[in-house]
Write a protein that binds this DNA or RNA. Structure first.
Lengths: 194, 194, 194, 194
DNA sequence: CATGAATGAGTATTCATTCAT
DNA sequence: CATGAATGAATACTCATTCAT
């Protein structure tokens, strides 16, 4: 499981394409290998098993996204602005990567419970970012002082996720990024912000 | 496909239990049959194939839930009250049926895309109920007149769904129904209601 | 297994139609029952099992055919004439009954070995008729005195059968009965007749 | 579907044995695999499906037989001699391979219509050899000039096939090869030859 | 006699993973 | 490091037959 060598990312990128184009259940290891231009057996030099490819895929993509978010919101003053920046970054990421959008919103959801549990573990990093924004907003008085952070986080994540999934299911025919401001406004209203 | 005879519901109820206890991929037809107390072949006198069991399961459970919701909210005056009633009914339904909660929130999501498309078709009835509440609320002046109904609906559904899923994933350790009022408040705030 | 009642033949005739129209492996007992206008269970009041329907079918059809042949050739003087009459009767029977031709030449052949053994048993009655003609022909000096009756019988039966099967496989596009005289001539030549 | 590697023929030979010893319907893929000494899945590296094994079996065996026949009859002068050579080769082939005789004469006949159609397609190569002999014989004046080649071919094939099938059904208790000359004589007589 | 709902045994095929080269 | 041929476990569905009514 050597992450330094180029084939590691090569296989992950191949997996995204193979899953997006064939669907989760039709993306056999041999198809991913072919897409990556390596032999089937080579996959197992870099990943423990098929599930490990998918978890690594999610980890790598989500990891770099969270890093990016962290940088972006560091430059913003208010929690309100930070939340908007986050939503915009989230919508932007998936708008720009068609394959990734299909894989994360539709295909990876039909993985088994075990895998989904592990994906949720990775998602916690993202949820922490949301929590941080919310807590800061409460402290600064931007958001209502009796805001239930857990519920608010579920609202933020649930709303964003549902918005993106609907967009993917509607074959991405409208501009997702344009929805960031109104979605943001709805959420801010909810938190008692202005 | 005779819905009138008791075995139809008997098999559907058995499927809920078998899936909840064994997981989607481990709920073989023979396991469902055994749970229902019928022979494997009997399943096929009432359902076209395995997928048909799952679609019917969702249709029956969701259908009766939507009917119930319709009755409940008919007795409420304001859209705000109707939304609360809906959230409470939703949380109540799944709080009372442990197996059903697991099946709808976790297991059925890992079905293939075809099946999920059909499930989404059934879900549209539920989304229509939400839409009706939102439109009424806008007309009556309860909600902001420039509320985007589609986004608002996605927020309602996304928030409720995420709240329930989190609760199921946390092994239902806290009282889901108690969350209805705060969740409701967050949403109402979002819509510019009081 | 009461042969006297009308339902016995009713089921046999239904079987011929069901097999001809659906093919041997697609002619389920329930399809035969439906075609006969009786319940599935009723079949088992008249036949021991599915195989029994098919054997009975062959026995009845072949039995009445052999009776008819016997009468027809009784009126003929020479063995040569008798053979011609037999070939004509054989071709005539199957020309007139499209369904029966398909069933005996194509569909029933894909039954299992057991059933085919039993069918062969029934066929022996037919082979005896051929043998009788051949022996008579030798005795009367019409055919060569050193004709091997077994081989000659296999030639007669093989030739007739192959001719009919080819005709059925070619979708019965040409006149089978017109082939009786030339086929007969080929065989008579073979036997050293004139 | 790599025909060059030894496992291809290994599996075909195993199929002949498995079918001859267990019967067509009892020759499961796993039985064939076991007989061939490979895993079930290995079968599918060389054949598309079970039907493909059977078609390939017939194609390989019949193909090599037709090649052999072609060589053998090339050395013969008259059509009469060629026909005798062909019958002898046919009887010889099946006399020497007990399993193959059972498979082609009894077991493969109970395959479904689709498979039988494909087998018939392969058989056409054999029928062409017969036709060639008959046409040559007519041209050379060995056979009657008004011989109907199609009927004659059906007589040749029907007679040979029926003779072999009878021999197999009688448990091969007599010498099939000894029947070649008398069968040949019967046919030649039929064609007006000497 | 007649019904038809219920039964349950039986099998081709896929695909993640291994390991000899 | 890399290969790819070989492995073998695992499962939905059909249909001849029964038997309570």
């Amino acid at each position: 499981m050597n992450k330094s060598r180029p084939k590691y990312m090569q296989i992950i990128d191949a997996a995204v394409i193979a899953i997006a184009e064939n669907g989760y259940h039709q993306a056999q290891v041999s198809k991913i290998a072919k897409q990556a231009g390596v032999a089937d057996g080579t996959i197992y030099l870099y990943f423990k098993n098929k599930e490990d490819i998918l978890i690594s895929l999610f980890k790598e993509k989500m990891g770099s996204y969270i890093e990016e978010i962290d940088k972006l919101i560091a430059g913003k003053q208010t929690s309100t602005e930070k939340l908007l920046m986050m939503i915009e970054a989230h919508f932007d990421l998936l708008s720009k990567d068609h394959h990734l959008a299909i894989v994360t919103q539709l295909e990876l959801r039909q993985s088994n419970k075990d895998l989904r549990m592990k994906i949720n573990e990775i998602l916690k990093g993202y949820l922490k970012v949301i929590d941080k924004i919310l807590i800061e907003g409460k402290e600064k008085g931007e958001f209502s002082s009796n805001l239930d952070v857990r519920l608010a986080r579920q609202m933020v994540f649930g709303t964003i996720d549902e918005t993106v999934t609907s967009w993917v299911m509607n074959e991405e025919k409208y501009d997702l990024k344009a929805l960031a401001p109104p979605v943001h406004q709805l959420l801010i209203n909810g938190f008692g912000g202005r």
